[in-house]
């Protein structure tokens, strides 16, 4: 089905099978997100892309676009919710931006800038999570994992492997590795895998890259994630 829906009053065309977030991106409209990536099956878990569809809150990354929908995204109410959800992600893990080598290239940090997050608001959980430094080329810092499952999907869908999975439930959700020891060194992971590249935070890092680009000259240091994201979508479409 093709047609138009209204997004914050603007008419947005869509192609058959598109979700709200895809059609919006094609029309140069950014909807904040972390677990969504145009290359992979949508997950719908981070809930940052929550929009109001005909009055009901839905995830823009999974909700199919259809003719005549009334969608609201840039409202003060929804932006306030996005800020709170981002804060939840920050307090759930251990995110210390000043010494994280992903700082400036981190989407979690960039989204926090975008939603104007100035503090963490909620009490921190300070979970105790180990570090997987067993692999010579890839580092896994569980402290920074936000359970977006992008590495899980990229490993399956792009790398043709099955290195990661999410396990456990409630606040004890955690990432696990498909290897006998449960560590990266025995897994099929390789530094050039899409699964490593796609991590929106500093949880999965390619080793030896740390400060090649100095802090201050990185992707989100001078550009809002809104622009970066839309440019990437454009490049992706080409």
């Amino acid at each position: 089905m093709t047609g138009y829906f209204k997004l914050d009053g603007r008419s947005i065309p869509f192609q058959p099978g598109q979700t709200i977030i895809q059609a919006a991106a094609d029309a140069d409209v950014y909807i904040p997100h972390l677990c969504y990536h145009p290359d992979f099956t949508p997950h719908g878990s981070c809930k940052l892309c929550s929009v109001q569809v005909n009055g009901r809150i839905c995830s823009a990354c999974t909700f199919p676009a259809s003719d005549g929908l009334e969608v609201l995204s840039e409202t003060s109410d929804l932006n306030a919710r996005r800020q709170k959800i981002t804060q939840m992600l920050f307090v759930e893990g251990n995110h210390f931006c000043p010494y994280c080598e992903k700082s400036g290239n981190c989407q979690l940090q960039a989204v926090a800038y975008h939603v104007k997050m100035l503090d963490s608001h909620f009490p921190h959980f300070f979970p105790q999570r180990p570090l997987d430094a067993t692999h010579p080329d890839v580092l896994l810092d569980y402290d920074r994992c936000i359970f977006c499952a992008l590495c899980v999907r990229a490993s399956q869908e792009a790398d043709g492997k099955n290195v990661f999975a999410l396990s456990g439930r409630n606040i004890n959700k955690h990432l696990i590795i498909n290897s006998e020891s449960g560590t990266l060194k025995d897994s099929d992971i390789a530094a050039e895998d899409k699964a490593v590249e796609v991590c929106p935070t500093g949880a999965l890092l390619r080793r030896g890259q740390a400060y090649k680009t100095p802090i201050g000259q990185r992707q989100y240091d001078h550009q809002d994630i809104e622009q970066v994201s839309l440019q990437q979508e454009k490049a992706h479409d080409v």
């Binding site: 809930k47 992600l89 759930e92 456990g168 409630n170």
Partner: peptide, 12 residues
């Protein structure tokens, strides 16, 4: 534990 608001929110 799938989505942020429930996973983190119910514990908060």
């Amino acid at each position: 534990g799938f989505c942020t608001p429930c996973r983190v929110g119910t514990r908060l």
